[in-house]
Simulated scan of single mutants.
Amino acid sequence: MPDIRIIHYEDNRELREGLAFLIQATPGLELVGSFANCQRIGEEVRALRPDIALMDIDLPGISGIEAVPLVKAAAPAAQVLMLTVFDDDDKIFRAIRHGASGYLLKHTAPGEIMAALVDLHRGGSPMTASIARRVLRHFQAPAAPAEDYRLSPRELDIVKGLVAGYSYKLIASDLFISIETVRSHIRSIYEKLHVNSKTEAVLKAMREGLV
């Protein structure tokens, strides 16, 4: 299988260079770009075609959170993994709402960061344990009555697959449909649930008791 293409945004030079070395030294990963800011992120993502953008939040000019939708606009299939010191609810949920698929704190062990990149590419949503706990607490809080999102039976089947952690390929195989059909349903699910990422769709489905 081809290497997972990584683009990295981090303004701390020492950390940026350290992670660049680790990514390049990890079998199955390829660093296609490493930048100190997001000023030209749309152009860079379109040119370099990454599978994953590894993103700090506190960047000069355009913040990492503001940059997430720019990545998705330039490369809709690309995933975004936040790597930051911030563990407050506002930034966590803003990042997820903007389309981030994972959220790690910078004290995460280097090997775990590399493993998270692989996990993300395989369909996972890696999070530092304390972040995952915050997310779960938020979605376990008493909820208002769920809206009728008018998901079709097939869309509900796909949401169940996402909640179970299945990849698009596995969902397609399980439901005897093509991956492109899965992608088409996913777009409709995002629109109906008013979300922008798989992680947000899964969390909302769990929060609203849809599956």
Rank of each mutant, 00 (worst) to 15 (best):
L48F: 05
R49L: 14
P50I: 01
I52M: 03
I52S: 00
A53Y: 05
L54G: 07
M55N: 05
I57A: 13
I57Q: 06
P60V: 07
P60E: 13
G61A: 07
G61Q: 09
S63C: 11
G64A: 12
I65M: 08
E66L: 09
A67T: 07
V68Y: 02
V68W: 05
P69N: 08
V71G: 05
V71E: 09
V71W: 01
K72H: 14
K72N: 05
A73I: 06
A75S: 15
A75G: 09
P76T: 08
A77F: 08
Q79R: 15
V80S: 00
T84S: 11
V85C: 11
D87E: 15
D87F: 05
D89Q: 13
D90N: 11
D90Q: 15
A95M: 06
A95L: 06
I96V: 14
H98S: 14
H98M: 14
A100R: 03
G102M: 04
Y103W: 10
L104M: 13
L105A: 10
L105E: 12
L105G: 07
K106S: 10
H107F: 12
A109P: 02
P110R: 11
P110S: 12
G111T: 10
A115P: 09
A116I: 05
A116R: 03
L117R: 09
L117S: 05
V118P: 05
V118T: 15
D119F: 08
L120D: 11
R122A: 15
G124A: 15
S125F: 15
S125W: 07
M127I: 04
T128Q: 10
A129K: 14
I131E: 13
I131K: 06
A132T: 04
L136V: 14
L136M: 14
R137I: 01
R137S: 11
H138Q: 15
A141R: 13
A143L: 00
A143P: 00
A143D: 04
A144K: 09
A144H: 00
P145Y: 01
A146D: 05
A146P: 02
D148L: 06
Y149Q: 00
Y149E: 00
S152A: 09
R154N: 01
E155V: 07
D157M: 06
V159W: 03
K160G: 13
K160I: 00
G161S: 07
L162K: 02
V163W: 04
Y168S: 11
L170Q: 14
I171K: 04
I171A: 02
I171C: 03
A172R: 01
A172F: 05
S173N: 13
S173F: 01
S173K: 14
D174W: 01
D174A: 13
S178C: 07
S178V: 08
V182K: 01
V182L: 01
V182M: 03
V182G: 02
R183Y: 03
R183L: 08
S184W: 07
S184K: 15
